[in-house]
Amino acid sequence: MNSPYLSYTLALEPFQLFSPSHLISLLLTVLLAFVLFICRRMLRKPSADVLARSLLAGVLALSELCFQLWHVWTNTWSIGEALPLQLCSVMLLLSMFMLLTGSYRLYEVTFFAGICGATQALLTPELFYPFPHFRFIHFFVAHAGIVLACLYMTWVRGYRPTFASVLKSMAVLNLLLLIALPVNHWTGANYLFVSRKPENPSLIDFLGPHPWYILSLEAVALVLFTLLYLPFRLRRRAAHPKRLDA
C-alpha cells in the first residue's frame, strides 16, 4: 500500500485538533443537520422517507465495511483493533438497523449514547490521520452519520425519548462495559477507552486516573443524557401541564 492517503503507517503531518480541515468537517455536519431540519416535512412523505432512511443506512453500512476492508487491505486487521466494540462503532450498527427497521427501541438507545458519543468524538477525535486520508474521511462520515440518523428519527419520524429511555441507554452502556473489559484484558485492546485514556486530548483527561475515570464517565453520561432529554420533558409538560409523563 503505497498511497499516503490509504496507508496504515502515517506518511503525512498528523491530525491537528481544530485545524481548518477539522473545523470544516464540523461545519459540514452542522449544515447537514440544518438541511435535514429544513427538509423534515418533505421527508415525511412515505416514498421520500423510505429512500432517505435507506440512503443514510447505506452510508453507515458502507463506512463500516470500508473500514474493515481497509484493515484487511493493509494487513492490520486484528481482534484488538477492528472489532466494532467502540461506543460509536456499536452506535453506528444500531443506528443503521434503526433506520432500516424504524425501531423505537433502538432509537431510545442511539438517541442518547449515539448523539453524545458521536458529538464528543467529532469535537475531540481519537484520530491521527489528517485530511484527505481515508481514515479522516471515514471518521467524520461515520460519526456525523450517527448524529444525523438520530436527528432524522426525531425530526422526520417524530420519535421522542422518555426518561425511561435515559435509563435504558445507561443500561446498554454498562452491558457494553461488561463485554469490553474482558476483551481488552485478553487482547490488550482499549475498547470503550476503559483500559487507558485516549492518546489525543479528550473529556476523559479531566475525569481522574484509571480506573476511577470509568465511574466519572458513568456520572458524566447520566448528566449529559438527562440534559439531552430535558427539552423533551419541558415541551411535554408545557403541552400537558396537568399530566406527568414517563
Results as ranks from 00 to 15, higher is better:
112 F>M: 05
113 A>S: 08
114 G>A: 01
115 I>A: 00
116 C>M: 12
118 A>Y: 00
120 Q>Y: 06
121 A>P: 02
121 A>H: 01
123 L>N: 05
123 L>F: 10
124 T>E: 03
124 T>Y: 07
126 E>Y: 01
126 E>T: 01
127 L>P: 01
129 Y>H: 10
130 P>M: 02
133 H>G: 02
136 F>I: 04
136 F>A: 03
138 H>I: 14
140 F>R: 06
144 A>K: 02
146 I>V: 13
147 V>C: 09
148 L>N: 08
148 L>K: 07
150 C>T: 13
152 Y>N: 06
155 W>M: 14
155 W>R: 13
158 G>T: 08
159 Y>D: 13
160 R>N: 07
163 F>C: 02
165 S>T: 02
166 V>M: 00
166 V>P: 00
166 V>W: 00
168 K>M: 03
169 S>F: 09
172 V>Y: 06
172 V>C: 04
173 L>D: 02
176 L>E: 02
176 L>A: 01
179 I>D: 02
183 V>D: 01
184 N>S: 03
187 T>C: 05
190 N>S: 01
191 Y>L: 04
192 L>M: 12
193 F>Q: 12
193 F>A: 12
193 F>H: 11
193 F>T: 09
193 F>V: 08
195 S>G: 15
197 K>M: 15
199 E>W: 13
200 N>E: 15
201 P>N: 05
202 S>W: 03
202 S>Q: 07
206 F>V: 10
206 F>H: 13
208 G>W: 12
210 H>W: 15
211 P>R: 10
212 W>Q: 04
214 I>H: 07
216 S>D: 11
219 A>P: 09
219 A>F: 15
222 L>Y: 14
226 T>I: 11
226 T>D: 08
226 T>R: 10
227 L>R: 07
227 L>G: 12
228 L>K: 04
228 L>W: 11
229 Y>N: 08
231 P>M: 08
234 L>N: 11
235 R>H: 14
235 R>P: 10
235 R>F: 14
238 A>S: 14
238 A>W: 13
238 A>F: 12
239 A>Q: 13
241 P>T: 05
242 K>V: 01
244 L>I: 13
245 D>A: 07
245 D>K: 00
245 D>S: 08
